[in-house]
Write a protein that binds this DNA or RNA. Structure first.
Length: 361
DNA sequence: GACTCGTGGGT
DNA sequence: TACCCAAGAGT
C-alpha cells in the first residue's frame, strides 16, 4: 500500500474532485456520525481493537440493528480478546445463534486464540489480513479504525457511494477494480478510519440503495452519478433459489429433548440442532426417522436461506409411543426443556422447536 | 469468477 | 407477496 493523496498518477486520482470529497464527508461525519457501541466516544482518537474487530466480523453481511444486541452480550460476557480466546468454542457458537453465517463464530474463536497467543492484534493491514475470518474488507477496516492506518476500506456501502460519485456503470463484480481505484483516490491519509465509517454512514442513511437522499447529501456537488443514482451500481442478475424439503425430529424424554451438533462444514455448521433427515442445499432430506415411533407431523417451518428455501416438517412422537432406544441415535445430548433458550439453536431449529412445543400445549 | 453460507427488516 | 439486501470470507 503506497500512501497516496498527492502524487499518485493512476486513473481517477487525477480527478479534480478527489481532494475535496474527504473534507466534505468528514465535516458531515463530525456533525452526523451515528453513535454506535463499538465506536470510540467523541474526542477519543482510537477505538478498542478488540471491539472494532468483533463488531466488524459481526457486521459482515449483517445489519447494524441485528448486531447491536449481540455485540453488547459478547462484550459483557467476554470483555477482551484473551477472555474470548479462553472460551469454549461451543459456548461462543451458542452465543452467536440467530446471527447467521456461523462459520464466522468458529473463525472468531480461532482468531481470538491466535491474537491472544501473539499478545495482541497486528497493527498493519497485511498482518490483520492473515488472521482467520478477516478478508480484504475487515482487515482494512480494523487497520484504519482501530490503528489509524491509511487503508482503502471497500464494502457494499463504499461500492455504492463510489459508483455513484464517479458514475461507474460497469456491472458488478467487474466494476470492483475501478471502484477500488476510485475509493483509493478519495481516501485521505489522515482519519482514514473516520472516512471509512463516514462512507458507511452515508451509504446507510443518505446514499441508500433505494430512494437516495441526494438533496441533503454532503457530496452532492461532487457527484457525477446523481441523475441515475438509484441505477448504480449495476448488479448482475440473481440466481433462482432452490426449494428443498426435510424433516426434523423432536425426541423428548423426562423434560429434555435430544439435540445433536451439526458437522462443522455445510449449512448451520457446528451448531446445535434437532436431529434431521440429512436435508441440505443440494438435496432433499431422506424422510427416514432416526428411530421407530409413532411419528406425527406437528407442523412445518418454511425457512428461507440465502440460496435455498426449506420446507421443514417437524415430527413428534405420539404420547405412549415415546422413543426409548437412545443408543440408536447419533451422538447428542439430552437438553432440559426449561433451558432450551440457552441451547444456542439457530433460527431454523428454534422455530422447529417452537412448533413442537406448541403442539404439546 | 462462481458458489456457498443466515437472518430479519424494508418495500 | 415476493423480492431485495446488509460494515464479506473462504473455497
Amino acid at each position: 500500500m503506497d500512501a497516496r493523496g498527492q502524487s499518485a498518477k493512476c486513473g481517477k486520482v487525477d480527478d479534480p474532485r478527489a481532494g475535496s470529497i474527504a473534507p466534505a464527508l468528514l465535516g458531515w461525519y463530525d456533525a452526523h456520525a451515528r453513535a454506535l457501541p463499538w465506536r470510540a466516544p467523541p474526542g477519543a482518537n482510537r477505538a478498542d481493537p478488540y471491539r472494532v474487530w468483533l463488531s466488524e466480523v459481526m457486521l459482515q453481511q449483517t445489519t447494524v440493528a441485528a448486531v447491536i444486541p449481540y455485540f453488547e452480550r459478547f462484550t459483557t460476557r467476554w470483555t477482551d480478546v484473551a477472555a474470548l480466546a479462553a472460551a469454549p468454542e461451543e459456548e461462543v457458537m451458542a452465543a452467536w445463534a440467530g446471527l447467521g453465517y456461523y462459520s464466522r463464530a468458529r473463525r472468531l474463536v480461532e482468531c481470538a486464540r491466535v491474537v491472544a497467543d501473539r499478545g495482541g492484534f497486528p497493527e498493519d493491514e497485511a498482518g490483520l489480513r492473515a488472521l482467520p475470518g478477516l478478508g480484504a474488507y475487515t482487515a482494512a477496516a480494523v487497520a484504519a479504525i482501530a490503528f489509524g492506518q491509511r487503508a482503502v476500506v471497500v464494502d457494499a456501502n463504499v461500492e455504492r457511494v463510489v459508483a455513484r460519485l464517479f458514475d461507474i456503470d460497469e456491472p458488478l463484480p467487474a466494476a470492483r477494480a475501478a471502484i477500488r481505484e476510485a475509493a483509493d483516490a478519495i481516501t485521505p491519509d489522515a482519519r482514514s478510519g473516520d472516512f471509512a465509517q463516514a462512507m458507511m454512514d452515508l451509504g446507510a442513511g443518505i446514499c441508500s440503495v433505494r430512494a437516495p437522499q441526494c438533496l441533503i447529501c454532503p457530496l452532492r456537488s461532487d457527484c457525477r452519478g446523481q441523475a441515475r443514482a438509484e441505477q448504480l451500481p449495476v448488479k448482475p442478475p440473481k440466481k433462482a433459489k432452490a426449494q428443498r424439503v426435510g424433516h426434523a425430529w423432536w425426541i423428548e424424554r423426562d423434560d429434555a429433548v435430544w439435540l445433536i451438533r451439526r458437522p462443522a462444514n455445510g449449512m448451520l455448521g457446528g451448531m446445535r440442532a434437532l436431529p434431521d433427515d440429512g436435508w441440505n442445499a443440494r438435496r432433499d432430506g431422506s424422510g427416514n426417522a432416526p428411530l421407530d415411533g409413532g411419528w406425527q407431523e406437528a407442523g412445518r417451518v418454511a425457512h428461507v436461506f440465502t440460496h435455498v428455501a426449506l420446507d421443514l416438517a417437524v415430527m413428534v412422537s405420539q404420547g405412549d409411543d415415546r422413543p426409548e432406544r437412545v443408543n440408536e441415535l447419533e451422538e447428542g445430548e439430552w437438553w432440559p426443556l426449561a433451558r432450551l433458550d440457552e441451547a444456542g439453536l439457530p433460527t431454523l431449529y428454534a422455530r422447529a422447536a417452537a412448533v413442537a412445543m406448541a403442539r404439546k400445549g
